[in-house]
Simulated assay, not measured.
Amino acid sequence: MSKYESLYTFKDEEPRKINVNITEVLSKKSANVNAVSIWITKDWDEDWYDVQTTQEKIIDKGYTPVFIFYWFGDDICIEYIKKNKKEYFVALRKFLNYLKKLDGQKIVVLNPEYNMSGTEKWDGMNDVFLKSYKIMRKDSQVLVGPCVGDFGDYEKISEPEEWRLFDPSLKRAAKEADFIAFQEMRAVTRNSKEEILKTADRACSFARYLHKKYKKPTMLAYLAVSSYGNAGEQIQESVYRRFEQLLPKMKQESKLILFGTFHYFDYPGHVGYFNEAEEYFGVLRKDGSLKPSLKYYNQLH
């Protein structure tokens, strides 16, 4: 199983402002990590992660790059896909040309959280995935698969009635995928403490469901548990402790091949669905000091 971190450049405190690649920090504080995630959004340009840096700082140092292709983003819906499908495939081929310049194993996670706004019930999404696989596999060093979002009632540990909703969009495409990825995101700005503390058990149930349903290895593409709020760091620590307990079961029952964290450091200024809690998803604080959750994160293997 691989375990990986979201990639971004950590900037040291004033006045030195020394840019340090994330792998240099991981080698010192989380030596068991062996992969790094790299987000590819609609406005992505190759200069963001130039080939030489990705090759030398990531692949050549023994880290597998996990590219999360998030082109449709929050705009995703059936109408948007139909209208922009041609542009999407142009972007995917541009990305393929970048991948081919990299020598080593690469993983591509397609369209995370696509299963919303009606897309989850649309059979045409299968064709989008199948064509995407075909393009990506022109690089023989790529593993590729879709990423569903775990949505629903987080008071529940298992929710097959909710999880069955996206089957029409995935049942044909799942057969050709190398894996089925999923995500889990929680913060007190959107979830109760009780819901957050159930994250690991629910993820275990979801992975088991996906593996049984689609007969493929599973991947936790990204876990985001914010430490924002009262006792937030202790809540985050409890979630990571529970994942450390459940991980052997997930690997055995769900053939889990990757465990992703979003982010490694807190990310000041990050914006999104969870509002102010977005800045506190890291297992390290913004200054590099350790949160309690890092202990259990480093025990994941």
Rank of each mutant, 00 (worst) to 15 (best):
K3W: 05
Y4V: 02
L7F: 08
Y8I: 04
K17H: 15
K17N: 13
K17A: 10
N19E: 13
S27V: 07
N32H: 15
A35K: 03
A35T: 02
E46C: 05
D47G: 07
Q52I: 14
E56I: 11
I59T: 09
D60Q: 12
K61A: 03
T64K: 15
I68P: 01
F72Y: 12
F72M: 12
I76L: 13
I78E: 12
K85Q: 14
V90Y: 02
A91N: 02
R93K: 15
L96K: 10
Y98T: 04
L99T: 04
K100G: 06
V109E: 03
T119L: 14
N126S: 09
F129R: 06
K131C: 02
S132T: 05
K134R: 07
K134H: 07
D139S: 05
Q141G: 08
V144A: 01
V144W: 01
D150E: 10
K156C: 04
A173Y: 00
D178M: 09
I180D: 02
F182V: 02
Q183P: 01
V188S: 10
S192E: 06
K193Y: 09
I196F: 07
A203K: 03
F206A: 08
K212E: 13
K213L: 09
K215V: 07
M219C: 11
M219Q: 05
L223D: 00
L223I: 07
A224H: 10
G229T: 13
V239N: 04
Y240A: 02
Q245F: 03
L246K: 09
Q252K: 14
L256N: 08
L258Q: 09
T261C: 14
F265Y: 15
H270A: 15
G272A: 14
Y273H: 15
E276K: 14
F281M: 11
G288E: 06
L290Q: 14
K291L: 13
K295T: 14
Y296R: 08
Y297L: 15
